[in-house]
């Protein structure tokens, strides 16, 4: 599995990171060297192995259905680059 420049462009798009065209070649080769290296996992037969789903062996605790927080519009929005009247403001979203 080798990553070409188009693939880099595609995953950068998925990850919402602008990448200049003149960076593509370098990024592709970097990603390829890392991917080639992790490829060695293919040496292992894991067909009968269950994937690890959690690093901790315990059952998930649940919270009760109580309203414990709210009315903190200011705390929620105070770090926003743009906000107005308690809303976050972003460039227009077209559906």
């Amino acid at each position: 599995m080798s990553v070409d420049q188009n693939t880099v462009r595609h995953i950068a798009r998925l990850a919402r990171i602008a990448v200049r065209d003149d960076e593509l070649e370098h990024l592709a080769s970097e990603l390829n060297s890392i991917l080639d290296w992790v490829e060695q996992l293919g040496e292992l037969d894991t067909s009968d192995v269950e994937p690890m789903t959690s690093a901790v062996e315990t059952t998930m605790k649940m919270r009760e259905d109580d309203v414990t927080v709210g009315n903190m519009q200011d705390e929620v929005t105070r770090n926003a680059p743009a906000s107005e009247d308690g809303f976050f403001v972003v460039p227009k979203v077209v559906e």
Binding site: T68, G70, Q73, E75
Partner: peptide, 18 residues
């Protein structure tokens, strides 16, 4: 996944936890 209220029709961003 949070303790914020689900009530409908509140003022914007008031039923929001961190």
């Amino acid at each position: 996944f949070s303790g914020a209220s689900t009530e409908f029709g509140a003022e914007q961003n008031t039923h929001v936890s961190l």
